[in-house]
């Protein structure tokens, strides 16, 4: 707890500067410059295949970049470093996947408690207690002993959020967290994300939920063909998008 509190107290920001990445000859990210302030909620939107997932995955270095730099509180995430150091860095950046990626062989509470135990060396009983609190927070205290396969998609995604929070990350990344869900379950996941945002969590969310973007985001990044074409506060972005491709994207969404 105390280390996490200390972390969030520091002025922490994410800086992306001139980030380029290509798969072979095909450039996926082109000269991305952007920054996220502490406590800020950024929503990334853009057409499918525009590089949103790739961009967000470079921030915890699930993807390597070809050039440029990404820093978290001044620490270069893509610098050469020992794998131990990289693992530690990754554990401070929460990541929520489109497909949940819960560990199906572990019960819900074990899913949440295992990484603090194995990665941080937290005592098992402490980690379990904490896990139960987090599950309570996402409304799933009664499912602690269940296995992921017994849960609905919305419940699984809430467990995945609790699992990420268990590492006490100062930053949370979401890659289309509601895209794999049936419509009636989208709300319960967004509600958890909203409450996180209201508590001051720094968040970067790739999502097509424009209602969420409007209500919660401080800033929208519109990305197309590997470039951030527009960054703007949501009311500005939705009312008067400047870039023609952003205008077309929003028009398509409304249909």
């Amino acid at each position: 707890m105390s280390t996490s509190a200390a972390w969030t107290q520091q002025l922490q920001t994410i800086h992306l500067s001139d980030v380029c990445k290509s798969y072979g000859d095909y450039p996926v990210l082109k000269n991305i410059d952007a920054e996220v302030a502490r406590g800020e909620v950024v929503v990334i939107c853009g057409p499918s295949g525009s590089g949103k997932s790739t961009l967000i995955r470079t921030i915890n270095r699930l993807e390597e970049i070809n050039s440029g730099s990404i820093t978290l509180d001044g620490q270069n995430i893509h610098a050469a470093m020992r794998t131990r150091e990289l693992n530690l860095l990754r554990s401070r950046i929460g990541f929520v996947f489109q497909n949940f990626n819960l560990f199906p062989h572990l019960s819900v509470v074990e899913n949440v408690a295992m990484s603090p135990i194995r990665v941080k060396g937290v005592a098992a009983n402490v980690a379990h207690e904490k896990a139960l609190k987090l599950l309570d927070r996402v409304g799933l205290a009664d499912k602690a002993r269940a296995y992921p396969g017994q849960l609905s998609g919305g419940q699984q995604q809430r467990v995945a959020i609790a699992r990420a929070l268990a590492m006490e990350p100062p930053v949370m990344l979401f890659d289309e967290p509601t895209s794999a869900l049936d419509p009636e379950m989208v709300g319960e996941v967004l509600a958890v994300m909203k409450s996180l945002a209201s508590e001051g969590m720094t968040m970067i969310c790739v999502t097509h939920e424009m209602g969420f973007a409007r209500d919660v985001a401080d800033r929208i990044w519109f990305i197309d063909a590997g470039q951030i074409l527009e960054t703007a506060p949501p009311d500005e972005f939705f009312k008067t998008p400047r870039h023609p491709r952003a205008q077309r994207f929003l028009a398509d969404l409304r249909h």
């Binding site: 699930l62 693992n87 530690l88 401070r92 929460g94 062989h105 990484s115 990665v119 941080k120 990420a164």
Partner: peptide
């Protein structure tokens, strides 16, 4: 996906293999 999740949580590749990948 499982390896990605393990790495995102900070597990080493050997730790991920032992506790997450191999059991499954």
């Amino acid at each position: 996906g499982q390896m990605d999740a393990a790495r995102a949580l900070g597990h080493s590749s050997l730790g991920a293999m032992r506790f997450i990948i191999l059991p499954q």
